[in-house]
Nucleic acid binder design. Structure first.
Lengths: 195, 195
DNA sequence: CCTACCGATCGGTAGG
DNA sequence: CCTACCGATCGGTAGG
């Protein structure tokens, strides 16, 4: 059945994303993954073409989500700084919603081989280029501080990585608390404001 | 000879740190490493006890460097916010000086097994606990903005990770430019100051 | 420091 | 979806 076929594949992709985040792509065996979804290793190949194929679907799927958010942000009828804030909040939200896929996207994409590696890097560069443009525009309008734009870009992206890698919202730190605190730190800095 | 013995081991550790950063610990084979230092795989074992032993030396050695910097910072005759700035500048500096070891420290430590895993985590937690205390003190004195301290801690640490992972200072981005820009962004935020 | 080799495990296939 | 199995590669050892 098409239906179950699809659900099983989705389950495999989700289990793989979790294993890749927890142990890393290279340290995750197809036998680990098979056990997770209650199959023998050989049966996985009825649903996916190869181990790399799984990583490819996760990485390209996540890249598409980021690019869609960028499309949306660019269309907003607000100044550049607002678009950037919108995107950074998206980074926080996706980190809390789908942390496993985003960790593969961030940390494991280097295990892709050509031609997928190139396709992935092209998407990533496109996102970075457009984000960089928004940063420069925000600096030109005077909304944003004049900080070397590439350094700002990578520092902002990097600042979220603990959210993907291992953080899980819980009783002691809620999703709201985290979003508020992260945004405040990145937008206004650690030092108390005042001129 | 003791002298050459030591140099060779140091060379192995440095080559391993570079391979672990570029390919990951699990994807780096002892044969990869042997080739890098012009030996056969079996000869590596005259210098090191095991693959995990290499990772352990890198991770614990780096942890010690961070703890030494913390000792220093705590002794400075300045307010807490200054100590934090001092430590963050240390994070930038070590990222530019020894990026390979710090990447293993950050990304590959999870491949350690007991009892080393526990020893490593204890050192890391000690560093985080002391950094957290400085943050809280800085907020109490009114120097630092009131941001959820643990979120601030992990966001600050995470913000540097692109420096370790893949950045190399060069003609287009010098070490000075990077340090200035990163510190400005973290201390004062992306938005232009002004009340 | 090397040659020769070990058992274990890897991703993946054949065939039903 | 499974059993049975493949060649390749893994970390590491024996012995010199």
């Amino acid at each position: 059945m098409q239906e179950t076929e699809k659900n099983k594949k989705q389950l495999i992709l989700e289990s793989a994303a979790r294993l890749f985040r927890d142990k890393g792509y290279a340290a995750t065996s197809m036998r680990d993954l098979a056990q997770e979804v209650h199959l023998k290793a050989s049966s996985l190949y009825n649903h996916i073409a190869s181990k790399e194929d799984i990583l490819r679907e996760i990485c390209l799927g996540t890249a598409e989500k980021f690019l869609l958010a960028m499309d949306e942000a660019e269309k907003l009828p607000i100044p550049p700084a607002g678009k950037i804030e919108h995107l950074l909040r998206f980074h926080v939200k996706i980190a809390l919603q789908d942390p496993t896929s985003v960790t593969s996207f961030n940390d494991e994409w280097r295990h892709l081989r050509e031609p997928f590696l190139n396709g992935f890097m092209t998407m990533r560069q496109d996102y970075e280029r457009r984000f960089l443009l928004l940063l420069k525009q925000g600096m030109d309008t005077g909304e944003l501080a004049h900080i070397e734009p590439r350094v700002a870009l990578y520092t902002l992206f990097s600042a979220m990585r603990w959210l993907y890698d291992w953080f899980r919202p819980g009783k002691s730190l809620s999703a709201e608390t985290v979003e508020t605190a992260v945004m405040h730190l990145l937008m206004n800095g650690l030092f108390k404001k005042g001129s």
